[in-house]
Amino acid sequence: MPNASIWIIRLSLLWMLAGAVSGAFMHLSTGEVSWMPGFREVHIPAMIFGWMLSFTMGVAWWIFPRVNRNERQHDAPAWIMLGLFQSGLLLLIFVPSAKLVAHLMLFSGCAVIILSILKRVKKRGHAH
């Protein structure tokens, strides 16, 4: 499995756990801690972007066929996606005023990975 996929998938598992904890305690939270985001503000982005989308992207990057064998180690788009996604998520959760920038980063992360995986979606039997 490519290193980038390992990192993307492992981080997605950590987001899944963070999302599950915040979901469990969402109903119990009574007071507000000024510097901390609320459980609901963590739960939804962590589960949607951090867990499901990231995991899917990580697996897709690993499992889709490579266009040519030498491309095997060129994981730059996946690393860029990882950086954009993680930064975007942290911004979305901890800096509510930067919501637009955060969504722009998440969108760019998706765009980078989609554009580089697109050429790997091939017809059966089509080989280079």
């Binding site: 756990l17 599950a20 904890v21 979901g23 469990a24 305690f25 969402m26 109903h27 119990l28």
Partner: peptide, 10 residues
């Protein structure tokens, strides 16, 4: 109880 359900899932 909702938290217990959540912790079970976690």
């Amino acid at each position: 109880w909702q938290a217990i359900a959540g912790i079970t899932q976690f």
